[in-house]
Structure formats: C-alpha cells, structure tokens
C-alpha cells in the first residue's frame, strides 16, 4: 500500500480529489474554491494603498489563508513521507528539446537549471520567475480568477464566463509554450 502511495498518483485519483474540494468547501462553510483570491487578500491586508479594489474587510476571507496554508503543509508531507527517489518521468520529446537548452535535471518536479536562486540571477531565470509570476498574478485578477476559480469552480457551476476565461488561459499557455518560450529558454 505504502509503495503504491509513493508512486506518482494517476490523473483520475488526483482529479477526483481536486473535484471534491469544490463540495467540501461549500458544505463546510459556503466557501467558493478560488486560490488566486488569496493574492488579492494579501494586497488588501498588507498594502491596500487606498485603492478601492483592495479596500474591503479581508479578515472575512482568512479561511482561504488557512486553505493555502494547508496546501503548503500537504506538499511538505507528500515530499517528505510519500515520495520515491526515482526521477520524474518526462515525455521523450520534451526531454530532448530541453536538453538543447541545457536543461537536463529531472530528478525532481522542477528542473534545477531554471528553478533555483542561482537561476534568478540570470536573464532567463529572472524573466521566467519574476516575469512569469507577475503575469500570473496580473492576469488572474484581470480575468477574475485562476484555474481553480474559473476552470474548476466556475465551470462546475456552468458559468459561461468561466468557460471563456479557461479557453483564454489555454490559448495563452499554448502561445507561450510553443511560440515564445523557446526564445526565452535559449537566452
């Protein structure tokens, strides 16, 4: 059993658990699944700067900070007690493409060549980590939610705007991964 748990979990198990988060939060306290809202609450809590968008009682939303706190702890537990030492399996096509950009480490979930403090000091790493993060935060709020709030919660509630947002997320991702990222990776 333990050996099975230590292997990467199949998509249908993870998908079902993520899907069940929606009714779990609703039934526990009428809460809507939406993780990027925490970034807004962080702004409201730390630097509202008299901006109307951040002037609300963020303390009503602390439950969401507890939720993401749980995610951090869950990831920590999974990494320390439920992981095997085998390298991450990566599609051969992607592996050979990345090799051309000098990215060969797939011992862990993120390649060390890109996701490390050392990488942050390079042009490539800075663009991907700081630039990418900025786009994620700006875009999620502009769209009114992220993958959790729109793709999962919104579509579960049959909201057409959420379907449009999700299609846009995917379009942006395809454009970046196939048309722009190759240039950034070769920096």
């Amino acid at each position: 059993m333990m050996e099975l748990l230590k292997q990467p979990w199949p998509w249908y198990v993870a998908g079902a658990i993520i899907g069940l988060t929606v009714p779990a939060l609703l039934i526990l306290g009428n809460k809507h699944f939406g993780i990027s809202a925490n970034l807004r609450h962080a702004c409201a809590a730390c630097l509202p700067a008299n901006i109307k968008f951040f002037k609300y009682d963020w303390k009503k939303e602390v439950w969401n900070f507890f939720f993401v706190g749980g995610i951090i702890i869950g990831a920590l537990l999974a990494t320390h007690f439920l992981s095997s030492s085998e390298p991450v399996k990566v599609a051969p096509g992607l592996l050979s493409e990345l090799k051309a950009y000098g990215i060969e480490d797939h011992s862990r979930l993120l390649p060390r060549e890109l996701f490390s403090f050392k990488s942050l000091t390079t042009m490539r790493g800075f663009i991907m980590l700081v630039g990418g993060g900025f786009l994620v935060g700006f875009g999620a709020r502009y769209a009114g939610g992220c993958t959790s709030g729109h793709a999962i919660m919104g579509i579960s509630d049959l909201q057409v705007p959420s379907l449009i947002a999700t299609a846009s997320f995917m379009a942006g991702g395809f454009i970046m991964a196939n048309l722009i990222l190759p240039y950034i990776l070769s920096l």
Binding site: I35, S36, N38, L39, V68, I71, I72, A75, L110, I127, M128, L129, G131, G132, G133, F134, L135, V136, G137, F138, G139, A140, R141, Y142, A143, G144, C146, T147, S148, H150, P161, S162, I164, A165, T166, A167, S168, F169, M170, A171, G172, G173, F174, I175, M176, A177, I180, L181, I184
Partner: peptide, 23 residues
C-alpha cells in the same frame, strides 16, 4: 476574462504553475 485570461496563460506556461501549485 479574455485579455486577463490570455495574460494569465502566458505566465502559467512560463512558471509552470498557477497560483495553487505556487504554494
């Protein structure tokens, strides 16, 4: 939802993470 969604998608493919996975 379209403009922000596209911007979000660009960032998602770069960092390989939406807000949940970041945590």
């Amino acid at each position: 939802q379209i403009i922000g969604g596209l911007i979000f998608g660009l960032g998602w493919a770069m960092t390989g993470a939406c807000p949940g996975p970041l945590f």
